[in-house]
Design a protein around this nucleic acid. Sequence first.
DNA 1: ATAGGGTTAG
Length: 651
Amino acid sequence: MFQIQTLQPTYLPPPFHHQRHRIHAASRPSSTTLAVPLSTSNKNPSIQSLCKKGQLKQAIYLLTHEENPIQHTYELLIRSCAQQKNLSDAFTVHRHLIDNGFDEDPFLATKLIDMYSELDSIQHARKVFDEITNKTIYVWNAIFRSLSLSGYGEEVLSLYRKMNRIGMPSDRFTYTYALKACVVSESRISLLCHGKEIHAHILRHGYEGHVHVMTTLVDMYAKFGCVENASFVFSSMPVKNLVSWSAMIACFSKNGRPFEALELFREMMLESGDMLPNSVTMVSVLQACAAVSALEQGKLIHGYILRNGLDNILPVMSALVTMYARCGDLDLGRNVFNQMEKRDIVSWNSLISSYGIHGLGSEALAVFQEMVQQGMSPSPISFVSVLGACSHSGLVDEGKLIFDSMVKEHGIHPTVEHYACMVDLLGRANRLDEAAKLIADMRDEPGPKVWGALLGSCRIHCNVELAERASRRLFELEPRNAGNYVLLADIYAEAKMWDEVKRVKKLLEARGLQKVSGCSWIEVRRKIYSLKSTDELNPQIEQIHALLVNLSKEMMEKGYVPQTKVVLYDLDAEEKQRIVLGHSEKLAVAFGLINCSKGETIRITKNLRLCEDCHSFTKFISKFANREILVRDINRFHHFKDGECSCRDYW
DNA sequence: ATAGGGTTAG
């Protein structure tokens, strides 16, 4: 897997004109240095100044005429080669250094390792490391750093074990690099157990108070999704700084726990007045606001960003665009995008997917075209965004054209994720056979995302046969994802195959899994209220239920028919009606009607896909109560107005 | 003697 290559002969520098004796730097007679004091002091500054000016070739020319190059000269040249990204010059300097007896200089070895690493030539870095006998801790750490940056996590860990075996003590840097190595590995096996082992070493050697080491540890657990471990380490830290807090906030944000991210941010602002959040902190906080649709909180953060001059930082601005769009305010997101002085691919992708989740497929396509016209090369994520947008708006032919253009026009090979988008696009449009054929024709192994997209489409169009095929694969690939079992049970329930429903439910129980319960939430005056169908905590719950019962009665007179096929129990019609009326989204609608002022759009977010009954119920309400209602489900937005929904019943 | 580290957008 990891191979060390020797120097490529084509890159080898030509032989030197003046072959010199190999003299060890330390054993060089001092008289030699004294004999040419002028030449040394004249030439060294000039090599130095040439390096500074970026005139590497001239500097190397001077080097070949240099009588007594010193360590510092090589240091400057090495740095210059790295900056100029010039590998063949790097070889020249390296060779020269060896010929002058500096090949056992550990200081220069670390510099060489760093240089080769920056030149994307990890094999040569490794060769320097292997060949130096005097491996100081700096040399070890340098190769760890380089290997980690190139993604060779396992190689780092194997060297780390070797280092421990030979009794070379680690220092604080070793620990941070070794921890990083656990999360950068390209192989699919989890190196979490190694991370835990290093955690133990850190404690054993008394680094539990070291803020850098401990923050890296928090981040290591965060990257593995071990939120509890990360949180435990974080709270055990005697000293925390802004980076530690930011790492923990990012941990909550990235692992689907946005409320805790926001809570920790609040705590940070309260506890430590001297710590001012920076752009990195802001990005994680904005993601959390986006996840929970905390529009008002997001606006406050936006204000902070403007006041503190963070509004020229691209990651912050892209996160703002996404935050506004995901909080339901596409226009504010567009404004932020328009005001950006510079845009990178991520900014464009943010805008494209913003249009996508609002169901504005043609607009997303237009932005994509505009971006390409401006000379910006689309990234793989651009295609995920634009294909997703096509999917939500049913733009099947447009999506297929884009998919074909990936390789043909942009040289980007579709990944499993892109196939998942296409399966979703075709499947939603009830072209399930085409979707199945696309999967069959895939060169890579279709992963859970692809089969999941197919199963989701089978749910929409109630295709039992294909659903069974998809779920069989899914149960193998991700046996612990409860959502797949529920989808299959839904499909059986709709087909009234009650025995099969029972069988799937038993399977779910046998594996110790639970259906994710529906939850909806709504922001009222900067506070977020979440509602669950089983929730008796809301003080207004009786008022809410009463309102819903009345509304449904009145609406049924006007033609609303409860869609009870989503209920997974074989119950009588009335019981089923009672169950669907308790869905969390309807509770949130009622809560919004009670607590939001007239004319204000009611904005609701929920953790699952909108069920058909809630969809038709909310359409009715929007007309009946003359209210605009904006609902974000797990996939997209539904904008209800005058009895219609922006998704045109295609979701 | 010298040198090096942790959090970030779709």
